[in-house]
């Protein structure tokens, strides 16, 4: 009898979790329970790091400090250029009368406390949670590109599903051509670019960036680099393998981005934009447009 109850309950839970996503808070509760165990599991590694850090040569630390200072200088220079570009884009947009496309997103720095990399699940655990206003579906990046998105949160931690996880998909575009597709995880540190038709221009080495479609991931962040393109007979699409640009398992500090541009609420009134005269079509010169 107990087995029948356990069996039925397990099936019901699976259905509720898989189809309805109804078990979010229950899963968060379980995650909170398992959090201390995760911390204990990482203790040997932390102790090892602590022990090895103590024996690090002071010269090596000085060298690292120098390198970091140089890097900071370069980043600051790039930042200045970026600010100028941002201003210029805003000015051009104002001239064209279009809405601004650049979103300024708030960032939070978090530390990776645990990571798993096996064929079933590829995820990270971060040390920031609901208390720091981290919420589900926020994008996580490192210095090189997108790592994944937050799927569960507890008061003091959050779990990030990596882009290489078999359950993860992200809408992307090839930076060089603008061709859109879906990047799926394979479970083996690589990703697969899907739905790229065979008449597209794709090359090994092309950079894939987030397209922003779907409203979850912000647009324009690097995601992966194409490493292999196969033309399989009988399929209308290329078989494309890509390697993530982010250091998924080496990054210790990561950035949590605030939500990307939210979906438009269609009940909400859109802000009024200055009315422009519509394009006039001159019947005598059909096919030509005249801009007044």
């Amino acid at each position: 009898m107990q087995f029948v109850i356990a069996f039925t309950l397990a099936i019901a839970l699976m259905a509720a979790d898989y189809y309805g996503q109804l078990m979010g808070s229950f899963r968060s509760l379980l995650l909170t329970t398992i959090n201390p165990i995760e911390r204990v599991a990482t203790l040997p590694k932390h102790l090892y790091q602590l022990a090895t850090t103590d024996f690090t040569n002071i010269d090596a630390l000085k060298l690292e400090n120098q390198q970091l200072k140089t890097e900071l200088l370069l980043v600051k220079a790039k930042q200045q250029r970026f600010s100028n570009l941002q201003l210029e884009v805003s000015r051009l947009e104002a001239l064209l009368g279009t809405a601004g496309q650049i979103n300024t997103q708030s960032l939070q720095i978090a530390t990776v406390t645990y990571y798993s990399n096996n064929p079933l699940s590829q995820y990270l655990t971060l040390d920031k949670g609901q208390l720091k206003k981290v919420s589900v579906q926020q994008t996580v990046i490192d210095a090189k590109g997108i790592m994944g998105q937050i799927i569960r949160t507890t008061p003091t931690s959050s779990r990030v599903l990596l882009i290489t996880d078999p359950d993860h998909q992200i809408p992307v575009r090839i930076q060089r051509t603008g061709q859109r597709g879906i990047l799926s995880g394979t479970g083996h540190d690589t990703t697969q670019l899907e739905f790229i038709p065979k008449n597209s221009l794709v090359e090994v080495g092309d950079l894939i960036e987030s397209s922003g479609l779907g409203g979850v991931f912000p647009a324009g962040y690097p995601v992966a680099i194409i490493t292999n393109v196969e033309n399989k007979e009988g399929s209308p699409y290329f078989d494309i393998t890509a390697t993530p640009v982010a250091d998924l398992y080496q990054s210790h500090k990561v950035l949590i981005l605030s939500q990307a541009t939210p979906y438009l609420n269609f009940d909400e009134k859109l802000p009024e934009t200055p009315k422009e005269k519509p394009l006039e079509l001159i019947p005598s010169t059909l096919g030509q447009t005249h801009v007044p």
Partner: peptide, 28 residues
């Protein structure tokens, strides 16, 4: 069986699998 079910749920959380899947496996 109760222990099997609870441990299964914790395993689901750990392995990031649908909730109840490991609970079912452990129970069986």
């Amino acid at each position: 069986l109760f222990s099997a079910f609870i441990l299964g749920l914790l395993a689901d959380t750990l392995y990031q699998t649908p909730l109840g899947a490991h609970a079912l496996l452990f129970s069986i």
